[in-house]
């Protein structure tokens, strides 16, 4: 297995303080490996964006990080905790090591500045010794990389189409050759054709430039197609994590199962679209036990009492190459009482 580049451990994010606080992200453990595309899926409001904002320390008020650590492993260096960096350290870390493309990248460009200045100011901030000419050349190169002609440099954002703005943001994210790129539903506002076109480009760039991607969406079919591993979020927790092949073939958590069946599959056998009954939980009044149990077709008594922990399931045989009696491989975890955690794994 490849080594980790970003390790999230026990991350908790609240909106508000004290008793009023809404726990939008709870005890999240997640590891991003070098060069992989990690998909993060879940219904609206499950805390995906909050997780992304939290690990880059960009939470809008009243968001606060209530605990945990985010370890970044630089190339050949000791890991550093992003959450404990000083502000100057954080500024240097941002974009140069971890860039982020925001949900609704439509409004991510400042309407009053030209594309060129928004592409070059980030280079200047991180490399003050660069010359204006070299910065401009780099900006031109980035646009070419994402398939936009260089004469768009002088345009203002409102003169570009939505897809172009999206590409500009992706190009901007890659300008400093970061090790990690976080993409929060970067393509939801676009039509399906453009969406896939951009994603294909992204995966191709990833292979060429070797960065890792955290790809956030609620469209699981997209993830199955484009990502290496997938983590499923529900009510602020990761409920299942597996390779996309495993998850697609054999989702363990009933919620993953429901999510998969909410989207038409692009390849493979047709499934019947069933969706998930009920609606996402209210974070201010979370059900006890497993947050999903009120909507779960397989809920047992235990589900309403105890919160299942995320771990390697003890009962599931691994996918393709493992022998019949071996436990699931270590790269597959689930938080569900249907699949109690494999004892040896802990």
């Amino acid at each position: 297995m490849t080594d980790a580049v970003l390790e999230i451990r026990g991350l908790n994010v609240d909106y508000g303080l004290g008793d009023e606080a809404v726990h939008a992200v709870r005890d999240v453990d997640l590891t991003l490996h070098r060069g992989e595309v990690l998909g993060l899926a879940g219904e609206s409001g499950s805390g995906k964006s909050t997780l992304a904002y939290g690990l880059t320390r960009l939470l809008p008020p009243p968001g606060v990080i209530a605990g945990g650590e985010v370890l970044y492993h630089p190339d050949g260096g000791a890991p550093v905790d992003v959450l404990r960096m000083t502000l100057p350290e954080l500024r240097k870390f941002r974009w140069a090591e971890t860039a982020i493309v925001f949900q609704g990248a439509m409004n991510s460009l400042n309407p009053v500045h030209r594309i060129s200045s928004q592409l070059t100011d980030v280079i200047k901030a991180h490399d003050p010794r660069s010359t204006p000419a070299s910065r401009l050349a780099r900006a031109r190169e980035m646009l070419r990389l994402v398939g936009i002609s260089a004469d768009r440099l002088d345009s203002y954002p409102h003169q570009l189409s939505g897809g172009m703005r999206q590409r500009v943001m992706i190009g901007m994210a890659l300008a400093l050759e970061p090790k990690v790129v976080i993409m929060d539903e970067p393509t939801t506002a676009l039509d399906v054709v453009v969406q896939r076109q951009i994603l294909r480009q992204l995966v191709e760039l990833r292979e060429r430039l070797g960065f890792s991607v955290v790809f956030i969406t609620h469209d699981l079919s997209l993830l199955v197609e484009f990502s290496d591993r997938i983590a499923i979020m529900y009510g602020g927790r990761i409920v299942e994590e597996a390779t996309s092949a495993d998850l697609y073939r054999d989702p363990l958590h009933p919620y993953s199962h429901g999510l998969l069946n909410s989207f038409p599959a692009l390849r493979g056998p047709k499934r019947e679209l069933t969706g998930i009954p009920g609606s996402p939980p209210d974070l201010r009044a979370m059900p006890p036990g497993c947050a999903f149990h009120p909507r779960c077709p397989h809920a047992m008594e235990r589900c309403g009492v105890e919160v299942p922990v995320l771990g390697i399931p003890g009962d599931v045989r691994s996918g393709h190459d493992a022998g019949a009696n071996e436990p699931a491989p270590a790269d597959r975890t689930v938080a569900c009482w249907l699949h109690p955690v494999h004892d040896d794994g802990l």
Partner: peptide, 23 residues
């Protein structure tokens, strides 16, 4: 969003305040 992006880019606080927000 563009102010959040400016922060995410690691621009200095002053630059974000003047060039992105106040502007």
């Amino acid at each position: 969003d563009y102010v959040t992006v400016a922060h995410a880019k690691g621009l200095s606080d002053r630059r974000v305040m003047v060039g992105y927000a106040a502007r």
